[in-house]
Amino acid sequence: TEEFVRLWREAVRHNQTLHWNGTDFIPGDEWAEEFARREEEKL
């Protein structure tokens, strides 16, 4: 979602874990980066 992408970019900028829907998205984590890339492509 647009909100997820916005929060993810913020988390990456501050190198912080994003807690989203009970899942931890960690900047630099391969799975999280791939998920975020797919979400961005949907926008």
Rank of each mutant, 00 (worst) to 15 (best):
T1F: 10
T1L: 13
T1H: 10
T1M: 14
E2N: 09
E2M: 14
E2K: 11
E2W: 14
E2A: 15
E2I: 12
E2T: 10
E3W: 09
E3Q: 10
E3H: 08
E3V: 08
E3D: 13
E3R: 07
E3F: 06
F4A: 01
F4K: 00
F4P: 00
V5E: 04
V5M: 12
V5L: 15
V5A: 04
V5R: 03
V5W: 07
V5Y: 06
V5S: 04
V5K: 02
R6M: 11
R6D: 09
R6L: 11
R6F: 11
R6W: 10
R6Q: 09
R6K: 13
R6A: 10
L7S: 06
L7E: 07
L7N: 05
L7V: 04
L7P: 02
L7R: 11
L7W: 04
L7D: 05
L7F: 05
W8Q: 00
W8D: 03
W8C: 08
W8N: 00
W8H: 01
R9G: 10
R9T: 09
R9L: 14
R9P: 03
R9S: 09
R9Y: 14
E10Q: 08
E10D: 11
E10F: 07
E10G: 01
E10T: 03
A11T: 03
A11F: 04
V12C: 05
V12R: 08
V12I: 11
R13P: 00
R13E: 14
R13A: 15
R13Q: 14
R13V: 11
R13F: 13
R13N: 10
R13K: 15
R13D: 08
H14L: 15
H14W: 12
H14V: 12
H14R: 14
H14P: 00
H14M: 15
H14Q: 15
H14K: 15
N15A: 09
N15P: 00
N15E: 06
N15V: 03
Q16C: 15
Q16F: 12
Q16G: 05
Q16T: 14
Q16H: 13
T17L: 11
T17K: 11
T17F: 05
T17Q: 05
T17A: 11
T17E: 04
L18G: 00
L18D: 01
L18V: 06
L18M: 09
L18Y: 01
L18R: 00
H19E: 06
H19R: 11
H19V: 09
H19W: 07
H19L: 06
H19N: 11
H19M: 06
H19C: 14
H19G: 03
W20N: 00
W20P: 00
W20K: 00
W20S: 01
W20R: 01
N21V: 04
N21E: 12
N21T: 02
N21W: 11
N21M: 15
N21G: 11
G22Y: 05
G22M: 05
G22D: 08
G22S: 07
G22K: 05
G22Q: 05
G22R: 03
G22T: 02
T23P: 00
T23Y: 15
T23D: 07
T23W: 15
T23S: 10
D24Q: 11
D24G: 03
D24V: 13
D24S: 09
D24F: 13
F25R: 00
F25W: 04
F25Q: 00
F25Y: 15
F25I: 02
F25K: 01
F25E: 00
I26F: 09
I26Q: 12
I26V: 13
I26H: 13
I26N: 11
I26Y: 09
P27E: 02
P27N: 01
P27G: 02
P27S: 02
P27W: 02
P27V: 04
P27K: 02
G28H: 03
G28F: 04
G28Q: 03
G28N: 04
D29L: 05
D29Q: 09
D29I: 07
D29H: 08
D29G: 03
D29K: 03
D29R: 03
D29N: 11
D29S: 10
D29P: 02
E30K: 14
E30T: 14
E30S: 14
E30F: 12
E30W: 13
W31R: 08
W31Y: 08
W31H: 07
A32Q: 01
A32D: 02
A32H: 02
A32S: 15
A32F: 02
A32I: 04
E33A: 06
E33S: 04
E33K: 06
E33G: 03
E33F: 03
E33Y: 04
E33D: 07
E33V: 07
E34C: 15
E34R: 09
E34G: 08
E34T: 10
E34N: 13
F35M: 08
F35S: 01
F35D: 00
F35I: 07
F35C: 08
F35E: 03
F35N: 02
A36L: 05
A36W: 07
A36M: 08
A36D: 02
A36Y: 07
A36F: 12
R37S: 07
R37T: 06
R37H: 07
R37P: 01
R37L: 09
R38K: 13
R38Y: 08
R38V: 10
R38E: 06
R38M: 12
R38A: 12
E39C: 15
E39S: 12
E39F: 13
E39K: 07
E39W: 13
E39V: 14
E39G: 04
E39P: 03
E40S: 09
E40Q: 12
E40N: 07
E40T: 11
E40M: 15
E40W: 13
E41A: 14
E41D: 11
E41F: 11
E41S: 13
E41I: 11
E41R: 12
E41T: 11
E41P: 02
K42P: 01
K42Q: 07
K42Y: 07
K42I: 07
K42L: 09
K42A: 10
K42T: 06
K42M: 08
K42V: 05
K42F: 08
L43Q: 06
L43H: 05
L43I: 09
L43M: 11
L43Y: 10
L43K: 04
L43W: 10
